[in-house]
Design a protein around this nucleic acid. Structure first.
Length: 640
RNA sequence: GCCGGAGUAGCUCAGCUUGGCAGAGCGAUUCCUUCGUAAGGAAUAGGCCGAGGGUUCAAAUCCCUCCUCCGGCUCCA
């Protein structure tokens, strides 16, 4: 029998008998690995473990404890859901049912499902898992499959796109159920140790709003019941961190039905945090050579016509009629800043010119998009605009990136970085685009920042680097950004005089260190679970007198700490109750003072992490507090 | 915007299936208690049951329209 050679991930080559499957090779390597093998990745494609290998294949063995396996298992779980659905609702039509990062979904149509149906289908799915049906791959002639799906436009669509030209076509069968599918799958339905349906919603076919609306059922599956329990527990904890819930509990902001959707109202606690954030950004900006400017919320639409917003963005703008003249609330700050730049003539020596403004903007987002602070109609951008010579782009972008990195470090945040390149519809020459993109790339690489390239995802006016945050529920939101703009300088006919005494066109850089204060605050609330670092905490110290007799001492203490946000708990509660409340309000430090402390002039310090120390010297505590605040330390560390 | 779910006291929720006096806990207020490290006690106040219309002797409850929120899709700071 002839042999074939496969290459393993470590680069080693292995000779095996022709016709060997992924599983055979695993056993060849070792019996333990053979038993653990659940699938393989061959030349980058995930396949069943029973797939025969070709000579020269690159092979990765997939075992149970891997993300690949979880995807395979969940893909099979999606089939189990579909089978259960068809047992209960034979009329339902299946569209597509892929695995996701932490589960699966299946898009279906021609069936109405409510929560009762979901419970029934879930019970049916448990039954299918108990039946332990073998999952088999079958190759069918294309014509036969096309005919079988005669009245299912979605499966036919898949045959014409993903499976275009394939003949035969693979179908996976388990019991009476079969589904058009490339696989791979686990061996039998019994391999799914834990299965649950999570929620029901909707989606457009192929994500296109012009297509049919489908019912999307989300679920997840695990090999072991305990894994699923742990996952569901993490989900519950994430829900507790949701900024909409904490925002209300901690009295940070509200969005009132009467005052309007997507229009957040910041309470004193919220405003204290925003003010600290603004002061921090202002320091960074002043250090980096930005000059503060300020522009109004409203401009004549003449400006929006000049900037191109009226043409491209008018559907998202709030327009007002003022004495038969049209005005618009600003959706962006850049046209105002470009106009300021245009008020004088500039020399090449003056550039870069850098303006910044915490500018409130208004964007009429689609109603279904609004969500807490992450998507709103009125929000404030920590907006900077720079006017630079083309040869200054790289140095400027480097400066901006350094500041963005500084922000991430200060808060201990993490984000997905993406370089978005030239879209099909764009302005500016090939040469300037290429140069700009390579400059952005080079800044990212010189800073060792990991990033994805999103081809064609740039703005029509220039390429950009976006930083996306994940919220507690795992949704991604764009935050800080650096964007190059070749368009606005054209539209505003902005120029500077070069060394050659000729007019030249500057490049504009749009950048935000936070993105918007709204979205950034959302990220911080969830990131810290409401336990803000001392410098940001709306209330930094709470003084808890043991009895009313100690109120005088409490006020003297509060006066000594008058450069901090200090509150005195003077309700007629027991000490235990006062401590309990301070913990639930996530106050970094509590000072508990009774007769003992008052007589010795000390304090008892307790922090929100439940540590405490008695007989603390007031001066020493105050000095620590100042250092902790000024150094922007993340956690209260006096009691370390 | 589209599909689905929901809206009852400041907050969390019960009541709605089967129409018949609008409820609980927390919080608030007042009084008692002055308390030593994660919830002392009692009393009181608090509601256009999201808004409007309809059915009915009677609507929180049934029907219609709208608003808002939640989960997605699509778009984004």
């Amino acid at each position: 029998m002839s042999e074939i050679v496969v290459t393993l991930p470590d680069g080693s080559e292995l000779s095996v008998a022709e016709g060997s499957t992924v599983e055979d090779v695993a056993y060849e390597i070792g019996p333990g690995l053979g038993r653990d093998t659940v699938a393989g990745v061959v030349d980058g494609d995930l396949v069943d473990k029973a797939t025969p290998l070709e000579d020269g294949a690159d092979l990765v063995i997939v075992t149970e404890d891997s993300d690949e396996y979880r995807r395979v298992l969940r893909h099979s779980a999606a089939h189990v859901f579909a089978q259960a659905l068809q047992r209960r609702h034979p009329e339902a039509k299946l569209a597509i049912g892929p695995p996701t990062d932490d589960g699966f979904y299946y898009d279906v149509t021609n069936v109405d499902l409510d929560s009762e149906d979901i419970a029934e289908i879930e019970a049916e799915a448990e039954e299918i898992i108990a039946e332990d049906l073998e999952i088999e791959r079958e190759e069918r002639p294309r014509a036969a499959v096309l005919e079988a799906y005669e009245d299912n436009p979605y499966k036919r669509d898949i045959l014409e796109t993903e499976a275009a030209g394939e003949d035969p076509v693979s179908v996976y069968r388990q019991g009476e159920f079969e589904d058009l599918c490339a696989g791979p799958h686990v061996e039998s339905t019994g391999e799914i140790g834990a299965f649950t349906l999570l929620n029901i919603s909707s989606a457009y076919w192929r994500g296109d709003e012009d297509n049919d609306t489908l019912t999307r059922v989300y679920g997840t599956a695990f090999a072991e019941e305990e894994e699923m329990e742990a996952y569901l527990e993490r989900r519950r904890e994430a829900e507790e961190r949701d900024h909409r819930k904490l925002g209300q509990e901690l009295d940070i902001f509200s969005i009132d039905e009467t005052t309007g959707p997507g229009l957040p109202l910041y309470h004193p606690n919220g405003k204290r945090i925003l003010d600290e954030l603004a002061a921090f950004a202002r320091d960074l900006n002043l250090d980096a050579g930005y000059e503060p400017v300020e522009t109004p919320h409203l401009f004549r639409t003449e400006l929006w016509k000049k900037s191109g917003h009226y043409e491209n963005y008018v559907d998202d703008m709030f327009l007002l009629d003022v004495n038969d003249e049209e005005y618009g609330l600003k959706p962006m700050n850049c046209p105002g800043h470009a106009t300021i730049f245009d008020q004088q003539s500039w020399s090449y020596r003056d550039l870069p010119v850098r303006y910044f403004e915490d500018g409130k903007v208004y964007r009429k987002e689609q109603r279904g998009e609004l969500s807490g602070l992450s998507r709103v109609w009125a929000f404030t951008i920590d907006d900077g605009h720079e006017f630079v010579r083309p040869d200054q782009i790289e140095a400027e972008v480097t400066l901006v990136m350094d500041n963005i990195v500084r922000v991430f470090e200060t808060f201990g945040l993490d984000a997905q970085v993406a370089l978005a390149t030239r879209p099909e519809k764009s302005v500016g020459s090939d040469e300037i685009w290429e140069r700009a993109e390579s400059q952005l790339r080079s800044v990212l690489e010189s800073r060792d920042i990991e990033y994805d390239v999103e081809e064609g995802d740039g703005a029509f006016y220039g390429p950009k680097i976006d930083f996306a945050f994940e919220d507690a529920l795992g949704r991604d939101w764009d935050g800080p950004t650096v964007q190059l703009d070749f368009n606005m300088p054209e539209r505003f006919d902005l120029t500077y005089t070069g060394e050659d005494n000729e007019d030249h066109r500057p490049v504009m850089i749009h950048r935000a260190l936070y993105g918007s204060y709204e979205r950034f605050l959302m990220v911080l609330i969830e990131h810290f679970d409401g336990k803000f670092p001392l410098w940001l905490a709306p209330e930094q110290v709470r003084i808890l007198p043991v009895s009313d007799d100690n109120l005088g001492y409490a006020h003297r203490l509060a006066n000594e700490l008058d450069d901090f946000r200090v509150e005195i708990e003077d309700r007629s509660w027991t000490v235990g109750r006062k401590i309990q409340q301070a913990h639930s309000d996530r106050v970094p430090y509590m000072l508990i003072i009774g007769d003992d402390e008052e007589s010795t002039g000390t304090v008892s310090v307790r922090d929100r992490n439940e540590r405490e120390r008695k007989d603390v010297d007031r001066e020493a505590f105050a000095a620590h507090l100042r250092a902790e605040r000024d150094e922007k330390r993340i956690e209260p560390d006096f009691l370390d």
